[in-house]
Design a protein around this nucleic acid. Structure first.
Lengths: 221, 221
DNA sequence: AATTGTGAAGGAGTTCACAGCC
DNA sequence: GGCTGTGAACTCCTTCACAATT
């Protein structure tokens, strides 16, 4: 049965991966087994995950690819384009402004802001860097849905407070800081240093078991 | 008791966060409560996590900050500097080459490679882009410990095969692809599109419950 | 008095295994 | 015969609650 609302967090985290995998299925239908292989998970997992969205498969056949893609997109709230602002125009912010993967998946970078006057007027991809002092105005003008935060850690909390005050409720945070925000604001944290450190642990462990370097591949979330 | 080897994955993923949090504790000791607040987790969680490394705290007092930092670093295998190569010198690869957070945490970018002749000789931070055709040679010459993969998705698997053949066992993959690698190779996947899509889900859900926009903050891993 | 370390309870996520359907 | 949907078993992770320790 479909409705018994609330999809588990772990499932939500995998739906985008299924979406990615479905993009290069040649056929019009796909089995849980085949989709699982492409997404790098267990087939039972795929079936359980998809069952949370409803009974969209056909026994003996599999899932209709196009239909499934539509259902997952709907569940993720990926309807029209999402409008994204990048706050912090350093190395990383500049690279993300031009990242092809965003427009491909429906995320349009519509503004870039920084606190350093040197950057004002710089062109990043399709937008021009504006002063962070006009934050609220820019967010309103560009109808921003979500913010990518790429400031130094030292000012990240301060900027986050401003964002919250301006009504932003979705932040993808690259600053290596645990942001304090109200509970109605959603944060996803990406810390590249942390990723490398975790990787370091597993590599180190595998190396420690000298003779047999057998280990397990480590996923993400 | 300390040893009953094997620290749970969930704990490993939090150790770097504790490390980050410990960096700006002013005092010489810290309580699980205080550390938990800084790291954004529950105090019992902190205690259980740290108990996996051994009994390094003092009842009634807390944990000695310096000592704890050393123990966590040791557990993560963060001893000397780690040598990192960036494969794929596009937008993202170039930005990561100059990312300050890496050297700060002991990750030195010692090489950059790309398949496009236009990029050969380009200076990224401290290194010069070399052709991916000399991959094996460069990895050996620079004693590379881990690779950051920032190629387009289309060639990511192909390049990963090359890396594996050259003996690389740690890959931080930014390409939106599930890489097929032997079990002795460790992969961490960072997919920026996926992060935004997950964020989109929670935002969308919160918006759907119209009148009361109360939600929960979403962590990362 | 304060705070750790941990057994036990509780919750979440995964995998199995098979009935049910095409 | 092939494949989904799902209850049940299992494993992993989190939180509670308190005895042990300084």
């Amino acid at each position: 049965m479909a409705s018994m609302r609330r999809v588990p967090d772990a499932t939500v985290a995998r739906l985008p991966v299924y979406l990615r995998a479905l993009a290069d299925v040649g056929d019009t239908t796909v089995s849980s087994e085949s989709l699982a292989a492409r997404a790098g998970v267990n087939a039972a997992q795929v079936r359980k995950d998809l069952s949370h969205l409803g009974s969209y498969g056909t026994r003996g056949v599999g899932y209709d690819v196009d239909y499934l893609v539509r259902q997952i997109n709907r569940e993720l709230g990926l309807v029209g384009d999402r409008r994204v602002a990048i706050v912090g125009a350093g190395n990383l912010g500049r690279a993300l402004a031009g990242y092809k993967g965003f427009p491909q998946r429906g995320f349009r970078v519509v503004a870039a802001l920084d606190s350093d006057p040197v950057t004002y007027g710089m062109r990043l991809g399709l937008v021009t860097v504006e002063p962070v002092s006009s934050l609220t105005e820019v967010l309103t003008r560009e109808k921003v849905d979500m913010v990518i935060l790429t400031t130094p850690a030292t000012v990240a909390q301060e900027v986050a407070d401003l964002l919250v005050a301006s009504g932003v409720t979705s932040i993808l945070n690259f600053a290596p800081t645990v942001l304090q925000v109200p509970t109605n604001v959603f944060i996803r944290q990406v810390d590249l240093g942390v990723e490398l450190q975790i990787l370091s642990y597993y590599t180190h462990q595998a190396a420690a078991s000298h003779p047999t370097p057998a280990g397990a591949s480590v996923g993400s979330t």
